[in-house]
Simulated scan of single mutants.
Amino acid sequence: MGELFRLRFPNDTSRRIVHVDMDAFYASIEMRDRPEYRKKALVIAHDPRKTGGKGVVTTANYVARQFGVHSAMPAQEALHLVPRELLVFRDPDFEKYRAVSAQIHQIFHQVSDLVQPVALDEAYIDVTANHDFSNSISLAVWLQRSIEAATHLTCAVGVSYNKFLAKMASEYNKPGGRTVVTPDSAQEFLADQPIGSFHGVGKKTLPKLIDMHITNGAELRAADPQLLERRFGKMGFVLAQHARGIDPRPVEVRKAKSIGKERTYNPPLQSDVAVKKELEHLAAMTVAAARKHELHGKTVVLKVRDVDFHTQTRRVTAENYFEDETAVAEAAWQLWVELGRLQRPVRLLGVTETALAPMSYQNIDLPLN
């Protein structure tokens, strides 16, 4: 059955796909900016001792991970896992992280316009048409060195002929490694990979596969594809493909659906005057970012989070496109007024433009007679 599967779904090995994954991205930025954190167990989360136990871990550095701290874990658990003298909580600063991410993505676009961001710290790049590098290793080295020179941060790079294998390759040698999986080496590479490292194998799927005596890539490849599909539906089909190094998905260049800026305040904002000043600043940055992509929008969204972590959003859609930062700031201020102005000190503000269109789409007033 496996051979029939391979013949029915041939493998395209002509592409060259890169997967870049930054090492403990948010935590690494904080350690770069605060070197005293490097020997600490740094957890990017609101300190649960200050929030009544609320909060979730965004990420953690490798010291904290050695104690079992991981992303999406309740921050409260970190208090029980890490010795108090080592543990440091740091509030996430997404404005700073987005700025660093933008630097990194500028480097990606130096090697290809086919870039698919997965998150602020992760992306696929299709470099099939790039002939500036003699081999994949030299390309991976250039990316790592360029990113480190620009940001003083490290990353893992995987290169292969499809997205699945490129991601497996980047995860194979973290942090800071680089791995190339060629068409000739793909089956050998996959054979020893634990089944839990395959994309789509989560907490529910993993024990079922183990019950079927499938614990690694070699055993997954040996399994009947039809049995996998009957047992796991579409995911079973995908697993059968991945076991054979097949992944036809293209690198997708996504058009922006919204462009915005937000900022966390410590100390919090205590007055309407301070809020208005920050809204003007955020509006200016949002419009500048939209113009960089030659876009403008008809909808403005305001996001507000107070010191009790209560978050509200409001939006307004205009008949015409918002032309400049003044118009966006005025719309954001009116939304603030609709929310009732300052009720509690403000921890976070965000301004976003949506309903985007190219700036070539102008506001046109048609004559009525």
Rank of each mutant, 00 (worst) to 15 (best):
M1R: 13
K39Y: 04
K39G: 12
V43C: 09
I44P: 11
I44E: 11
D47N: 14
K50V: 05
K50D: 12
Y62L: 08
S71M: 11
S71K: 13
A75Q: 05
A78I: 09
L81H: 04
L86V: 03
K96P: 01
Y97G: 03
R98T: 10
V100Y: 13
V115L: 11
V118M: 15
H131V: 00
Q144E: 06
A150I: 03
C155A: 15
A156R: 05
A156G: 15
N162S: 11
K163S: 06
L165E: 10
A166N: 09
A169G: 12
R178I: 07
T179Y: 04
V180Y: 05
T182F: 05
D184V: 03
K204Y: 10
P207F: 14
P207M: 13
H213Y: 15
G217I: 02
D224I: 07
L227M: 14
L227E: 15
F232G: 01
G236E: 01
L239I: 06
Q241I: 01
P248H: 09
E252L: 13
E252H: 06
V253W: 03
R254K: 15
S258E: 13
V273R: 08
K277M: 03
L282W: 05
L282Y: 10
V287M: 10
A288Q: 14
A289Q: 13
K298N: 11
V300A: 14
R305E: 15
R305L: 08
T313L: 07
Y321Q: 08
F322D: 02
E323Y: 00
A327P: 02
E338Y: 01
G340F: 03
Q343G: 00
L348C: 06
L349K: 08
I364G: 02
N369M: 10
